[in-house]
């Protein structure tokens, strides 16, 4: 939405992120999912951060200086590239907590973008007996192999009929 300029220009950027300032009116430096290697630390930071992979919530840039408070230290065994999903996993986890799936329940996840895919894997791990997913784009059918059992192509808004079918 930010990329397409669909966010109201008067809306303030997330005030909880110190690296973002101003509004959504263009040009805007925006982006909060990034992964990088810490090359230096300030005097108030501890040295063990140096040379570790981290996932700061920050503008997307090649090199950046951020407060230590917005940096998440990635586990050593994790592929650093996966760390870029940290912010989206936060969103997906919130969805999971709201969904409160119980063992054996049947869940339907609409949309298999980044967040939808993460939500699907989380509800699968939470013990859902059936996870149905759907998306507007045919090329996302292969995402079914990740966690869901059934995948539906959304056509003419009537995907709910399939979900409610016997």
């Amino acid at each position: 939405m930010v990329y397409r300029g669909e966010v109201p220009a008067g809306l303030a950027l997330d005030s909880t992120l110190p690296t973002l300032q101003g509004s959504f009116s263009f040009p805007v430096k925006y982006g909060y999912a990034s992964v990088g290697r810490v090359v230096d630390v300030g005097t108030e930071s501890t040295n063990w951060w140096r040379a570790t992979w981290s996932s700061p919530l920050t503008r997307t840039k090649t090199a950046t200086t951020v407060p230590a408070t917005v940096v998440i230290r990635l586990p050593q065994e994790l592929d650093p590239r996966i760390g870029v999903f940290a912010a989206n996993v936060e969103t997906a986890l919130n969805a999971l907590l709201d969904a409160a799936p119980r063992l054996g329940k049947e869940l339907f996840v609409i949309g298999q973008g980044v967040v939808g895919l993460l939500v699907t894997q989380l509800v699968r791990r939470a013990g859902a007996s059936l996870v149905i997913t759907s998306d507007l784009y045919e090329k996302r059918r292969s995402c079914r192999d990740l966690a869901a059992r059934t995948w539906l192509l959304i056509q003419q808004r009537r995907v709910s009929r399939s979900v409610c079918s016997r």
Partner: peptide, 8 residues
Amino acid sequence: ADVVIEAS
């Protein structure tokens, strides 16, 4: 479905 999550 018991739970529907709209993420699209």
